[in-house]
């Protein structure tokens, strides 16, 4: 069983979709529980994130590993629901790049890593209207992640926080901000709860806050 877990971990870090698919099939045939498969893949995804930050892996690798994980979630989903594994989500998170900003690679990586870490992620994509973040919080998301890649759009993060305050929702949600021009000082200034410089740092802080 441990060999299957190791093979699965190694396949994820190799970042090749067919290898990941094969390792998942082998693990299932060997009787490894769906929750154990996902836990192993999540652990490997964290390692992929670390190697990405160190320049040992690159964006295509991260996206391939994420695609492999996404495929596995599709196959294992029914089994996870049956075993109650799906109910163990850490928190429900709305993610998006704020309106006026079309950059979304960093945000997508962050969404994927949060998903791999066990969060229920609602990724609204890029150029997301401010009201959409508020709507998702009203619908039950307890974490709100906003990305901005430009100095001209980072101010929208503050505006969404103000809207959450105006709706009386601010105390019910953990606000996360990130993006190239965003800093810890800026996050503190606008009243965000979490600043993430990288996808794995954001995921680590989100886990602590969930």
């Amino acid at each position: 069983m441990e060999d299957n877990k190791k093979a699965l971990y190694d396949a994820m870090v190799s970042c090749k979709v067919p290898s990941i698919q094969g390792a998942v099939e082998n693990a299932r045939k060997a009787g490894l529980a769906a929750t154990a498969i996902i836990d192993t893949m999540s652990e490997a995804m964290t390692q992929v994130g670390i190697l990405f930050e160190r320049g040992k892996l690159f964006l295509p690798h991260v996206l391939s590993a994420a695609a492999g994980m996404k495929n596995a979630m599709g196959v294992l989903g029914p089994e996870l629901i049956e075993s109650g594994g799906m109910s163990a989500k850490m928190a429900s998170v709305v993610m998006g790049t704020v309106e006026g900003d079309v950059h979304d690679i960093g945000k997508s990586i962050c969404s994927t890593m949060l998903q791999c870490a066990g969060f229920d992620v609602h990724d609204l994509g890029r150029d997301v209207p401010k009201a959409e973040f508020v709507r998702k919080v009203k619908e039950g998301c307890t974490m709100c992640g906003m990305s901005a890649l430009m100095t001209t759009t980072m101010t929208v993060q503050k505006e969404v926080i103000e809207m959450l305050k105006a709706e009386g929702l601010r105390d019910k949600v953990v606000v996360m901000v990130g993006g190239a021009p965003v800093t810890q000082a800026y996050a503190d200034k606008i009243g965000a709860d979490i600043f993430g410089e990288t996808a794995s740092e954001t995921t680590g802080k989100a886990k602590m806050a969930a």
Binding site: C15, G55, K56, L57, F58, L59, P60, H61, S64
Partner: peptide, 15 residues
């Protein structure tokens, strides 16, 4: 690694 796995003479050049 914009491609990530492209090789020259059998070796990956990225990184």
């Amino acid at each position: 690694g914009i491609h990530g796995s492209i090789e020259y003479d059998g070796s990956i050049v990225a990184g």
